[in-house]
Design a binder for these strands. Structure first.
Lengths: 121, 121
DNA sequence: TTCCTGTATCGACCGATGTCAATATCGGCC
DNA sequence: GGCCGATATTGACATCGGTCGATACAGGAA
């Protein structure tokens, strides 16, 4: 386990919106990893369940939301963690997760179609 | 081929930002399809190359950007088209593509983390 | 220490996906 | 009509990815 995201795929900023200028090969490869992490119905729901809470979410609260085995959910959470989308921490018996807003913000900005100025800001 | 997107996966609006409320199973399944379409380095670059232009893009201009066979690029373009992310039209010998901004806007809104009001609008 | 509950890892299975070569189709042109 | 260049479709192949059961690990409680 890890206090923060173990493999912070998205270290820091990266690339302007898709519509601003052609993305580089390297940026495309890195972003595709993150997008693959969210491109799954189960992980989308996990991410949403975690993100929609004000507080950290216990894995034990996520399990009953799905008709899937515990190892499968654990696997999906690991995927989200390795993509830098969520963080997790064990506290006693339970493991709690939270979203990393910067990761969502980057994806939101990636698909931004605003045509005006702005730069990377 | 098709003048517009043949399988408009994203018919119209759908779902608030992930962080606002837990997404439904159906919405998650539908959004995952669209996200799978962009969760590939080649398709991300294709989308960006098309989106970053002011005018429609000829497929013949896209091919030399990649070290991939023509059928492979054609296949990826079809994937983007079926996801409702781009439109295509044949004009004479060539086929031209353009992005569908509403599709990008939806993805951008999906990952929005703004906490305040807003509704769907 | 020993048990018990919550979570992670392992190994296997199988369907989905990216890629190519071969071939088909579409339109323009001669 | 017949040819040719641009794009699409087909079929095959290899790899990837989601799922499970079995099992390992962590930590609290008795």
């Amino acid at each position: 386990m890890s206090k923060q995201n173990p493999l912070p795929v998205i270290a820091e900023e990266c690339c302007a919106p898709l519509a601003r200028e052609p993305i580089s090969k390297d940026d495309a490869a890195e972003l595709a990893k993150v997008l693959k992490a969210v491109a799954d119905p189960v992980r989308l729901r996990l991410l949403s369940l975690i993100a929609a809470r004000d507080e950290e979410t216990c894995v034990c609260d996520l399990l009953p939301e799905f008709d899937l085995s515990q190892p499968t959910i654990s696997h999906h959470l690991k995927t989200l963690r390795e993509a830098g989308l969520i963080g997790s921490e064990r506290r006693g018996t339970w493991v709690y997760s939270w979203v990393i807003p910067q990761a969502l913000d980057r994806l939101s900005a990636l698909f931004d179609t605003a045509r005006e100025e702005a730069g990377v800001r």
